[in-house]
Amino acid sequence: MVRLNINGKSIDVDVEADTPLLWVIRENVGLTGTKYGCGIAQCGACTVHINGVATRSCGMQVSEAVGKQITTIEGLAKNGAQHSVQKAWIENDVPQCGYCQSGMIMAAAALLKEKPKPTDADIDAAITNICRCGTFQQVREAIHMAAKSA
């Protein structure tokens, strides 16, 4: 049994300590907005925030997340108000298939927290998620838009 803090709530889950955090979030906690894409921390579809830092949850054992603040896409909006990144994503019609977008949004939100006015170079360095539909042009525009709105 491990105790996790996910989206501000304390949750006890009965899992082996070496289970990847991704699968605990998806299968034991039941939050499926965080996606499985590769399982080897390459694609970023599983990106969540651990104490505010964008982290690929497929490569992190659940035991490492104990005692830390875990935020998933479902917890990004606060008190029912969309995060500026979510608003910019909707305004820019960013997602195509959308499968990678939870991770993309979480990576973008973490970037803006660290660098409220990121340059294109900052975006290039921080957003390394794979999107096979190819939404990158809209992603870049939406990050700049979110930066302006904040």
Partner: peptide, 21 residues
């Protein structure tokens, strides 16, 4: 016009096959 399916793709609510329960 904006796509009809965007909002649920920004908050984790869209259910893909892999998410079905």
């Amino acid at each position: 016009l904006k796509r009809l399916d965007t909002a649920a793709k920004t908050n984790g609510k869209m259910i893909y096959g892999a998410d079905f329960k």
